[in-house]
């Protein structure tokens, strides 16, 4: 195998609790810490391990987003990606458009494997991987928790609702990484320095010939309804009494 493309999305950091703007126009992002989508870190880690086993020669990190997404691509380069491509857009895009942009990159780069996170923790859509596979006319293996490559065939263990499903796909294919695929490495300082010298190309949707699909629009954002605060009971007897009163235990 030669090339692996990894999708890297810039998202609000995992530890930040987002707040909805009072005017309903979205969530407040000013001054909020941004990071690489955690599932994309897992995707990249898997690509790095494949390369370290000698099963791939080049890893390209691709992000679609604002100019600032270069920071997340630098993180990916510091983790070990060989080069990076930013598809610049200042407009929020739906996964369908993201999939078209990735497809355009794929047509140029001709990768043998694409690995993305199973979902981004901002929009929680979980669509880009399977959409890309559909547009590309190639296999998809979503929710991957184990990946084995044997020549031109990959075997994937998928975390599904019923348990663990194993499928086999012909390469090239799109894999979406689940939590337990691996534990991503920490970035070391010398690697951050080295990453600054790695190649990072910037392009945009228009250059790639991709138009933004506006078939789905977000018209309002609101805070979720809060649950009413409950009570603390002092012991097991009081708990059982409370549950009996509600008819939840007999």
């Amino acid at each position: 195998m030669q090339k692996i493309i990894v999708g890297i999305k810039r998202v609000v950091d995992y530890n930040v609790r987002v707040r909805v703007k009072p005017d309903g126009s979205g969530v407040a992002l000013d001054g909020v810490k941004m990071s690489v989508n955690p599932f994309d870190e897992i995707a990249l880690e898997e690509a790095l391990r494949i390369k370290e086993r000698g099963e791939a020669t080049e890893i390209i990190a691709v992000s679609i987003g604002p100019d600032d997404a270069q920071q997340q691509l630098r993180t990916a380069l510091a983790m070990g990606a060989d080069r990076a491509i930013l598809v610049k857009t200042d407009q929020a895009i739906e996964p369908l458009t993201a999939a078209h942009a990735l497809l355009a990159i794929i047509k140029t780069e001709q990768p043998d494997l694409v690995i993305v996170g199973k979902q981004a923790i901002d929009d929680d859509a979980a669509q880009t991987g399977p959409m890309l596979a559909a547009l590309w006319g190639r296999p998809q293996a979503t929710f991957c928790s184990k990946l084995t490559i044997n020549g031109t065939v990959a075997t994937i263990v998928r975390e599904v609702d019923a348990g663990l499903e194993t499928i086999e796909v012909d390469l090239p294919a799109v894999i979406s990484a689940d939590l337990r695929l691996n534990e991503p490495r920490y970035v070391k300082l010398p690697d951050i320095m080295k990453a600054k010298k790695k190649q990072l190309d910037v392009t945009d949707l228009a250059t790639l010939g991709v138009s933004i699909d506006d078939g789905l629009k977000t018209v309002h954002t609101e805070a979720p309804k809060a649950r009413a605060k409950g009570i603390l009971v002092k012991d097991v007897a009081e708990l059982v009494d409370a549950l009996k009163k509600k008819g939840l235990v007999s």
Binding site: V12, R17, V18, V20, V27, I121, D122, D123, D124, L216, K217, T218, V219, H220, T221, E222, A223, P224
Partner: peptide, 10 residues
């Protein structure tokens, strides 16, 4: 979205 910390109308 955001693990249920915001609700959007689409």
């Amino acid at each position: 979205i955001y693990a249920g910390n915001a609700i959007i109308t689409v």
